[in-house]
């Protein structure tokens, strides 16, 4: 049974282009996007903010027992990336032969995250590539 398409469609901007949000009042940045700023509450004035995709690894782990969705990908690395504009983002880290450590510089790349069965949608997503 394929998943409905609305979930994919709603998240295209953050998933393709790292579009999060920023509070115009205090400058705080968020990813994924938030409707209300954690600092400013009801005073918050949120707008879209596209992040450049440069960052560094804060933490990472190698997944060896994957969920079914990623069963042919394992082993693969998932990490928390601190983007140059501030927010921490969770993401897959591409194996390009470069060693991944805390502090490794990465940049965002555009990749396929998973394919929904034989006939469902293809989910495209940012991943991070060590540089």
């Amino acid at each position: 049974m394929e998943k409905p398409s609305a979930g994919l469609w709603r998240k295209i901007k953050p998933r393709y282009n790292l579009v999060g949000s920023q509070c115009k009042k205090c400058g705080s940045t968020y990813f994924p996007p938030r409707i209300v700023c954690k600092n400013c509450g009801r005073e918050s004035r949120m707008e879209d903010r596209q992040f450049a995709g440069d960052g560094e690894v804060v933490s990472f782990t190698t997944i060896r027992v994957p969920p079914d969705t990623f069963k042919d990908e394992a082993p693969y690395i998932v990490g928390i990336i601190k983007l140059s504009e501030g927010p921490n983002v969770e993401g897959h880290i591409i194996d390009n032969g470069r060693k991944v450590e805390v502090g490794t510089k990465v940049k965002a790349a555009f990749r396929r995250m998973y394919v929904d069965g034989e006939e469902g949608l293809i989910y495209y997503h940012y991943k991070f590539e060590p540089i």
């Binding site: 042919d72 591409i94 790349a109 555009f110 990749r111 396929r112 995250m113 293809i122």
Partner: peptide
């Protein structure tokens, strides 16, 4: 191509 690459991801990387 990597397992996570197809003609669309290649097109996007080149287009950007």
């Amino acid at each position: 191509p990597g397992r996570d690459e197809d003609a669309a991801t290649i097109a996007v990387e080149a287009a950007r």
